[in-house]
């Protein structure tokens, strides 16, 4: 009987997991749009591209959320293209924003170096990513709200400008 119960639980669990909506990532998607709005790239970087590119590097925890949100939006007056890649070598066109997943910790130095050269805003949601050079890093507060750190030195070295409003509300490190 216990075997049966466990079997049913497993099946149910898997089915339900597929249906589950990523509440946390819905919020993160919305934040990404705001970050784009409050960040300035070099003029050439924006002008030279027909699209505004966002790359998700590593495990995709957003599901279809980024496509759903950004398919309806324009950023810097350009339609948005989302790229999903597992490592840096797969990136064909240097994007404007890279979201770095948790599983990329071992490649972080290379990614930060790449973004520095290519004027790319980096965003992550992993403990210590901010200290390690990721420009904007999400963290969960004690009140269970989503806040973020900004590594100002790293932002400046990538030749990006972040609006003062964003700096005022972020934890600047």
């Amino acid at each position: 009987m216990m075997k049966k119960i466990l079997k049913y639980i497993t099946v149910l669990f898997l089915i339900s997991s597929l249906w589950a909506q990523e509440t946390e990532y819905i919020l993160k998607s919305a934040f990404l749009e705001k970050f784009c709005k409050f960040t300035e790239w070099e003029k050439e970087k924006i002008d030279s591209s027909a699209y505004f590119y966002i790359t998700l590097l590593g495990e995709n925890e957003f599901g279809e959320l980024l496509n759903d949100l950004f398919s309806k939006l324009k950023i810097k007056d350009k339609p948005v293209k989302i790229q999903y890649v597992q490592n840096l070598h797969e990136i064909e066109i240097p994007p404007h924003l890279i979201f770095i997943s948790k599983d990329q910790k071992k490649n972080l130095d290379k990614i930060i170096q790449y973004s520095k050269i290519n004027n790319i805003l980096t965003v992550g949601d992993t403990e210590n990513y901010g200290k390690l050079g990721v420009h904007i890093n999400f963290y969960i507060t004690q009140e269970n709200t989503l806040h973020f750190t900004i590594n100002l030195a790293s932002v400046q070295s990538a030749r990006l400008r972040i609006n003062l409003l964003l700096l005022e509300i972020a934890k600047v490190i």
């Binding site: 509440t23 946390e24 919020l27 919305a30 934040f31 705001k34 409050f38 969960i140 009140e143 269970n144 709200t145 989503l146 806040h147 409003l165 964003l166 509300i169």
Partner: peptide, 11 residues
Amino acid sequence: ILELMKIKIVT
């Protein structure tokens, strides 16, 4: 963005 920062993601 300020309103987003007030939304609780888990209780």
